[in-house]
Computed example of a mutant assay.
Amino acid sequence: MVYKGVLTKMQTEFQDPIQYYLVFKNDFIHVNQLIGKNIAMAFVGEQCLSCGLNIEIYRQGFCKSCFFDMPNAGNWIMRPELSTAHLDKEDRDLEYEKKVQLQPHIVYLANSSNVKVGVTRKTQVPTRWIDQGAHEAIEIVEVPNRYLAGITEVALKDFVADKTNWRKMLKNDIEDENLIEWRDKLKSHIPEEAKDYFIEHNEETHLHFPVNQYPEKPKSLNIKKDGTYSGKLVGVKGQYFIFEDNTVFNIRANEGKVVEICI
């Protein structure tokens, strides 16, 4: 069977194990059902996720023009502390920014390769943790807007990492941590504006991924450069396909690429 479409971040369901779906315009693939099977992929082209033009992708699935114009590619996406909608101040589109920024946000701790701090909209829990390949996570602060979450994350980055080591995550080179202890240890470092939003009593969330075999030395597939690839899918973790020959393919990093997948 052959599928063709524009790659976008896999949709997920929080089950045991996590369920993954690769969704195209007129079809979808339940990726869990492909584990243990040989699949072939071919690069066909590129299509901007915003304007829809068949044009080179610049970042985050957008062409260069859309990346610098679209409100959903503003700097506050990656750096929540730059959010200004709570001040009624526009970056690119105030209506959009109010819609996204002025809603409950979670500051969390997640353990994928190490304990890290992160920010997400409340509606994106636990999706954000799944996308990062975290095997355990805990909410530590719930605030009413993105700015407060951002300044809390910045303050806590002095005491805990804010990045995931993707190689360690994919190799499953992980250690269990007591995130409740981490939460309590970091409480005193939360900024004054966010202290009242600290979550006092909650438990860790544990996540299990559909992986039969972890790569010993992950090597990243560049489908645009290589053109084609075929191999046996042995797992999915985070937003990565994991193949038997140690090849890994980051779906999210390839958003906007048009591919043909043969099963």
Rank of each mutant, 00 (worst) to 15 (best):
M1L: 13
R183D: 01
K89M: 10
D27Y: 09
L82D: 08
D162F: 11
F14E: 03
H30I: 13
D158N: 15
Q15G: 11
F62V: 06
F209G: 04
Y96F: 15
K195D: 07
P144Q: 11
S83M: 09
I55R: 04
T247Y: 00
I140H: 02
D91M: 07
G238I: 05
A40L: 03
A149F: 04
T12Q: 09
S65M: 13
Q19P: 03
L102P: 04
V248H: 01
N54M: 05
Q33D: 15
L109Q: 00
R121T: 13
T228C: 03
V236F: 08
F241Y: 13
V2S: 14
E244C: 10
E244Q: 15
L22H: 00
T12L: 12
K4W: 03
K25M: 10
G256S: 06
T247I: 06
E81C: 03
N72A: 06
Q11N: 13
F249N: 01
G231P: 06
T164D: 01
T123D: 12
D176I: 07
F68L: 08
Y20R: 00
P210C: 12
I151N: 06
I174D: 00
L186K: 04
I55C: 01
E139A: 14
N111Y: 05
D176C: 06
V23I: 14
H208Q: 12
D16L: 12
Y58V: 10
A73H: 08
Q239H: 03
L102E: 08
T247H: 01
E95H: 11
K99M: 12
M1D: 08
K225T: 10
N178D: 15
C262V: 13
E204F: 06
G45P: 03
E136C: 10
P210F: 11
N26D: 15
M1T: 13
D69S: 15
N250M: 10
L170A: 09
Q33F: 06
F24M: 02
N212D: 15
A253E: 14
F68A: 08
N26S: 14
V259S: 07
K219L: 07
D16V: 14
D88R: 04
A40Y: 07
N202V: 10
V125R: 01
P126N: 07
I140A: 03
I29Y: 06
N178W: 02
K9P: 07
I174R: 10
K224I: 11
G74T: 11
N38H: 11
N178Q: 07
Q213L: 14
Q19Y: 09
P144E: 04
A155N: 05
V248A: 07
R252F: 05
D93W: 07
D245T: 01
E97V: 04
F14V: 12
A253I: 04
M78S: 15
N246W: 13
F209C: 11
E244R: 07
V2K: 15
D69Q: 14
P71E: 00
G52I: 10
